[in-house]
Simulated assay, not measured.
Amino acid sequence: MPISRAAIATESGERLINRLCKHWSHKLEVEYTERDAKIVFPEQNSTCLMHAEASKLAVSVEAPSDETLKQLEGVVQSHLERMAKDETLEIVWQN
């Protein structure tokens, strides 16, 4: 399965994980701690993993096809940007 990864420079990784997981927990399968998260997108048979470090948020998305992967990169990115509020995130996906 194709995988994309992004290392996002931010001091707010833990806050982003918390906000995003609370938001998605109403409709997706979500497991998270202060520093780690796993979000399952059952309809797309895909998974997003996040890990907060002191100055970055590591994000990976795994999907069954390149098309689904690109779609979920956009979904995850737009939601992270929304949860960041006034902080500008530079998100560059690598696969």
Rank of each mutant, 00 (worst) to 15 (best):
M1Y: 12
P2W: 02
P2I: 12
P2L: 13
I3T: 14
S4L: 07
A7N: 10
A7G: 11
I8D: 02
A9I: 05
A9D: 12
T10D: 07
T10H: 07
T10C: 05
T10R: 08
T10S: 04
E11S: 05
S12H: 13
S12C: 09
G13F: 01
G13R: 04
E14C: 07
R15Q: 12
R15L: 11
L16Q: 00
I17G: 01
I17T: 02
I17K: 05
R19N: 03
L20G: 06
L20M: 11
L20V: 07
C21Y: 04
C21W: 03
K22V: 00
H23F: 08
S25Y: 06
H26C: 08
K27Y: 04
K27D: 09
K27N: 12
L28I: 11
L28D: 06
E29A: 13
V30R: 02
V30H: 03
V30F: 05
Y32T: 02
T33R: 11
T33Y: 01
T33I: 09
E34A: 15
E34M: 14
R35Y: 13
R35A: 15
R35H: 15
D36E: 15
D36N: 15
A37D: 05
A37M: 04
K38H: 15
K38W: 02
K38F: 05
K38G: 10
I39E: 00
V40N: 12
V40F: 01
F41M: 07
F41E: 05
P42H: 11
P42C: 07
Q44K: 15
Q44T: 08
Q44S: 14
N45L: 13
N45C: 09
S46V: 10
S46Y: 09
S46P: 13
T47S: 11
T47Q: 14
T47P: 05
T47E: 14
C48K: 03
C48V: 10
L49C: 15
M50F: 06
A52F: 04
A52W: 08
A54R: 10
A54P: 04
A54M: 13
S55R: 09
K56N: 08
L57V: 09
V59K: 02
V61N: 13
V61T: 07
E62D: 13
A63M: 12
A63W: 13
P64W: 00
P64F: 04
S65Y: 12
S65E: 14
D66N: 13
E67V: 15
E67Y: 00
T68F: 11
L69W: 10
L69C: 10
L69Q: 01
K70E: 09
Q71M: 09
L72W: 10
L72D: 08
L72F: 01
E73D: 13
E73F: 09
G74V: 00
G74F: 03
V75E: 14
V75G: 13
V75F: 04
V76E: 04
Q77F: 12
S78Q: 08
S78G: 00
H79P: 12
L80M: 01
E81N: 04
E81W: 06
E81M: 06
R82F: 12
R82K: 15
R82V: 08
A84G: 02
K85R: 10
K85E: 07
D86C: 08
D86R: 10
E87L: 01
E87D: 00
T88K: 05
T88W: 07
L89V: 00
L89T: 00
L89W: 05
E90P: 06
E90N: 05
I91L: 09
V92A: 04
V92K: 07
Q94T: 05
N95W: 03
N95F: 03
N95A: 11
